[in-house]
């Protein structure tokens, strides 16, 4: 699914990184638990949907080769998080929608789960 489409479906805002018009995502994983994120094994391009907004969210994605993070329920990305994300060429997005609503909308529109 195209990132642009994702952004539009969840009324999102890109707060860090460039969003190329043709950038696509194969699947998504929704969790506030970074321990779970670190267990994911996939070759596909993956987006993390999370309500956990801190530096370790970015670090976890750096180690897990996740390049797109969508922060839900109005969680705000800090400047420190943006800097670390920029170092790793990540795209950070925010939405006011809840984790459940965000995941439901994207799944219904065809975005697959990682498992």
């Amino acid at each position: 699914m195209k990132l642009e489409e994702i952004n539009s479906l969840i009324n999102g805002k890109v707060v860090e990184g460039q969003m190329p018009p043709d950038k696509t995502i194969d699947c998504a994983f929704a969790s506030d638990l970074m321990s779970d994120v670190l267990t994911i094994r996939t070759e596909k391009s993956l987006m993390l949907i999370t309500g956990l907004a801190n530096l370790q969210t970015i670090r976890t994605c750096e180690m897990s080769d996740i390049k797109v993070i969508l922060f839900v329920r109005g969680k705000k990305v800090t400047e420190e998080m943006k800097e670390l994300a920029a170092d790793n060429e990540m795209i950070l997005m925010e939405t006011d929608y809840s984790l459940f609503r965000t995941s439901g909308l994207l799944y219904a529109a065809g975005l697959k789960g990682v498992y």
Partner: peptide, 15 residues
């Protein structure tokens, strides 16, 4: 609160 402490660390390190 930081997203850890689920008891997955050592098993995941082994994997």
């Amino acid at each position: 609160e930081m997203g850890f402490g689920a008891g997955m660390g050592l098993p995941n390190m082994k994997l």
